[in-house]
Computed example of a mutant assay.
Amino acid sequence: MQQTPDVGGPAQPLLTIRGLQKHFALKGGPLGGGGDVVRAVDGIDFEVLKGETLGVVGESGCGKSTTARLMMQLIEPTAGEVIFDGRSVGSRDLPVKEFHRQVQMVFQDSYASLNPRLTIEDSVAFGPQVHGVSRTAAVNRARDLLARVGLEPQRFAERYPHELSGGQRQRVNIARALALQPRMVILDEAVSALDKSVEAQVINLLLDLKAEFGLTYVFISHDLNVVRYISDRVMVMYLGQVSEIGPSDALYDKPQHPYTRALLSSIPSMDPDHRTEEAALAGDPPNPINPPSGCRFHPRCDMVAPICSQRVPARVAVGARQAVSCLMYEPGSGHPSAPQLALAA
């Protein structure tokens, strides 16, 4: 399988997100104008490095799936920029069609993702044909990929989606995503609908395919154990913003943001001496239509100070490739736990 050449070199991030926003307008008056907006994604910045798996976690409604669709250009952003290997997506240098050939997505609902009127072989071969590959070459590629994801072409190629199990359909979706020979695959809750035995098989398949094809993954999931297992770095989202980002082991072993600590404490423990007896986090996330001022987590934070409702925290580096958006780590922020600014000599 041939891939598009590396334009920017190995040191350049494959994907860079700058100031990405998506506000959904709500109907207000009788003509539909003048209403509020849902701040689903509200100004996020991050990078995806070449060859890594970036995990994305957070509570339901934090903006994970909207971020994935914005990255894929499936919905129009309110503001912000998506840069792929040094080229702005949607510009003359990188049209959206060419971007979609290099970045593919696997969705959560394996059945709804497939056309029920197309055979499995035709579903996988459809994308390459749209991008100019001949019918014969596309079918050969589809059969090769079905074999690589563990579906014997002689048995499965002529079947329809309703004739397959959920795990088999998700393998078809993975094969279809790889049919265009992409450089990056975005997996939005791609294994969450599967039972645990099938989930483990699909995760190991994803790791094998990543090594074989040199892929870069963005892996979105609510399963914190799976995210740690598969990810090189993890990004934590809360109410449309990034709370913390860093290497997987560092973030799980020593979380810095109060929300990250609360989120990770929800992971069930098999040790009877470490059972969770008290909820680490109370209440539901605030309404994204009218989010809290200052730090959005302050109404639920056990480290809250008066300044937290007044000042939006900046992202501060707290270790090697680890950064957190919290006033406790921002020098001179006014939080009692914040470092003091060094006095000029």
Rank of each mutant, 00 (worst) to 15 (best):
K50A: 12
G51P: 04
G51M: 08
E52N: 06
G55V: 12
G55C: 12
G55I: 13
E59D: 06
S60K: 01
S60I: 10
G61Q: 12
G63H: 13
K64R: 09
K64S: 05
K64H: 13
S65L: 13
T66P: 07
T67R: 09
R69A: 04
L70E: 14
M71Q: 08
M71Y: 05
Q73F: 04
L74S: 10
L74P: 10
T78E: 12
G80K: 11
G80W: 07
E81I: 14
I83M: 13
D85F: 00
D85Y: 02
G86W: 05
S88T: 15
S91H: 01
S91C: 09
L94A: 04
P95S: 02
P95C: 07
V96H: 01
K97R: 15
E98R: 15
E98F: 00
F99N: 05
V103H: 08
V103P: 07
Q104P: 09
F107E: 09
Q108Y: 08
Q108H: 01
Q108D: 12
D109A: 08
D109E: 13
S110N: 02
A112L: 10
L114D: 07
L114Y: 07
N115E: 08
N115L: 05
T119I: 09
I120V: 15
I120Q: 02
I120P: 03
D122H: 12
V124A: 03
F126Y: 14
F126L: 14
P128W: 11
P128S: 08
P128G: 03
Q129M: 15
Q129K: 14
V130P: 00
H131C: 00
H131L: 10
H131G: 01
G132T: 00
V133I: 15
V133Q: 13
S134M: 03
S134K: 01
S134R: 01
R135L: 05
R135V: 08
A138S: 15
A138V: 04
N140A: 15
R141Q: 14
R141W: 06
R141Y: 04
R141S: 10
A142I: 05
R143M: 00
R143W: 00
R143T: 02
D144P: 00
D144K: 10
D144H: 13
R148N: 07
G150L: 01
L151S: 06
E152C: 02
E152S: 14
P153K: 06
Q154N: 11
Q154K: 15
R155M: 12
R155E: 14
R159P: 04
R159N: 05
Y160V: 01
Y160R: 12
S165A: 09
G167H: 12
G167K: 08
G167R: 09
Q168R: 03
Q168F: 11
Q170P: 05
R171W: 13
R171N: 08
V172H: 03
